[in-house]
């Protein structure tokens, strides 16, 4: 359920929505963090739902002491009206038994808001790439039929690859081919739902392994920026991305002096 920060709920009609999938290495979530912090997007509301594990913390994008004292929750909505951009950030895993309910909730919210298009940032296990997928870039895209016509050509022009369908029974010629996104969380479910319900959706995903996934997040966001030009010219964008304060100490606390 979307809860607006202001009394009058903002209108997202015709806006572009960018949201992460909770997937391997949290790449989508990291890329979303980078985007919100780089564009300095203000928060406009929350997605308050029982489908996500509760978490709370102080402002992850704080730039000064004052802005630090702002409580943030597990799913928040940020918006820049002048560039018609809305971002949904998800900061907690989806409760396993409620995954389908969550997908339905997000999709019905997308439809109710009247977003022009939705872009899901996601990732998939690198070790599950098959022989065809191993060659070239680790970045892939998927477009729902409703968006295919408009976005298909520009993405091809950028020489991005569409996510390959893989054989359901590898090694058997002519066997059924299916979409397979291991480690992608609700990516595949949300994408197939949007296809069947005529929602304009694109999925951008990267093959990655768990570990320090910050470079993957930069790569995914640069790919998004090449397409949508969210932050300046594509060539100079990567130096403009601003790493949020919440990325500190990714590998744990400092070393206790007592061990020496």
């Amino acid at each position: 359920m979307f809860i607006s920060l202001e009394n009058a709920p903002p209108s997202f009609k015709g806006f572009t929505l960018i949201m992460p999938a909770v997937s391997v290495g949290n790449v989508g979530q990291l890329a979303t963090d980078l985007l919100i912090s780089s564009l300095g997007m203000p928060r406009v509301g929350y997605l308050h739902t029982d489908c996500l594990i509760p978490m709370a913390g102080n402002n992850p994008y704080a730039v000064s002491g004052e802005s630090a004292a702002e409580l943030s929750t597990n799913a928040e909505v940020y918006c820049l009206s002048d560039v018609r951009l809305t971002v949904l950030q998800i900061r907690a895993p989806v409760i396993q038994t409620k995954s389908r309910k969550f997908r339905k909730l997000v999709l019905s919210w997308i439809k109710a808001c009247g977003f022009d298009k939705t872009i899901v940032l996601s990732s998939s296990h690198a070790y599950q790439r098959d022989d065809h997928q191993l060659l070239g870039t680790p970045l892939r895209y998927l477009l729902s039929p409703a968006l295919e016509q408009e976005a298909g050509a520009p993405l091809k022009e950028l020489e991005y690859k569409e996510m390959e369908r893989v054989s359901a029974f590898p090694g058997i010629d002519g066997s059924e081919e299916r979409l397979y996104i291991p480690g992608g969380g609700f990516t595949k479910g949300l994408y197939t739902d949007s296809c069947s319900e005529g929602v304009r959706m694109a999925v951008l995903l990267i093959f990655c392994s768990e570990g320090d996934n910050i470079p993957d997040a930069f790569a995914l966001l640069n790919c998004l920026n090449d397409w949508l030009h969210l932050a300046g010219k594509p060539s100079e964008a990567s130096s403009q991305w601003k790493v949020p304060v919440s990325w500190r100490l990714l590998f744990g606390s400092g070393i206790p002096p007592a061990i020496f």
Binding site: I53, P54, M55, G57, A62, A68, N74, V245, W247, R248
Partner: peptide, 12 residues
């Protein structure tokens, strides 16, 4: 509570 700490569970 300083970044990057978060709370979970019932308090959250």
């Amino acid at each position: 509570l300083e970044q990057p700490n978060i709370v979970t569970g019932l308090p959250a």
